[in-house]
Amino acid sequence: MIEVEALTKRYGSTTAVDGLTFTARPGTVTGFLGPNGAGKSTTMRVVVGLERPTSGTATVAGRRYADLPAPLHAVGVMLDARSVHPGRTAYKHLLAMAQTHGIGKARVREVLAQTGLEPAANRRAGTFSLGMGQRLGIAGALLGDPATLILDEPVNGLDPDGVLWVRHLVRELAAEGRTVLLSSHLMHELALCADRVVIIGRGRLLADATVQEIVARSERAGAVRVRTTDPEALARELLTAGADVTPQDGGVLQVHGASVDDVGTAARRCGVTVLELGAESGSLEDAYLQLTGDSVEYRTADTLGRTR
């Protein structure tokens, strides 16, 4: 269980995290989603005690991380694949971690096997690819067999095999009753493995709900898409009927507040030929883009007009 309560972290005049509150519960994978620079990593770093909150609290299993008597057994942490001395072998890196908690060499070998790093165990970490670094980071997180896992962008740099493996691993860990907090800026990745999603932008909470709830919130959800020979005439007809109409490229209209049947009938009424008509379904990606639309720090001018 991870509880973040009114957490604020400022660096000088920059506010990285602003009054953030959310809970990650046991037995679920909680996805932590937000654009680059939204404050995901900062939040995770405060949770594991690397940084001090400006105000608010963050606790794991009801305690401040720094007060945990045996952190490795309580929380598995992977913040960055580059958290290893490049001159040290994978085995020695994990051994040094294990030694701080009196964990034996057998367990080190076990996590090396579990993460598929056995053949590379005696290679220096500096020679590792990003994907292997991620596997080493995950091996370190699993070392103490913890009840809570905090993984920052774990699929970053992994090959398709590795992505599948992480997806399967976090599902399995949650099924065993563990708390998993997993950050990503890839919404489809989280849609596939998270139960709940916490979305933040500019350090503020934008949404905290199940994946289904967030999808249902998408602007496209419940909308009707219609392509006709005369969009203007149909738009006028629909507006008088009390629906909301958003014109789009290629003679397409997006209609809210009217069913597919209503739109079809309206088209018949004003004598417009319907070329295409259907209900739209929302996606996490849409919901995410709408939610974070105002809070993206870095974006290309091109994506500004793209809401699809």
């Binding site: 045996a70 057994h73 040290r88 908690h101 009196g102 034996g104 367990r107 579990q114």
Partner: peptide, 30 residues
């Protein structure tokens, strides 16, 4: 998963000392 834990769990001064010795000697440049 099995936890191969021996003795009292958690870090002690002696355990951290052993870990730091591993870290010092496992970097070839040292």
């Amino acid at each position: 998963m099995t936890a191969a834990v021996m003795g009292r769990p958690g870090s002690t001064g002696l355990r951290v000392l052993r870990a730091e010795w591993t870290k010092l000697t496992s970097v070839r440049s040292n």
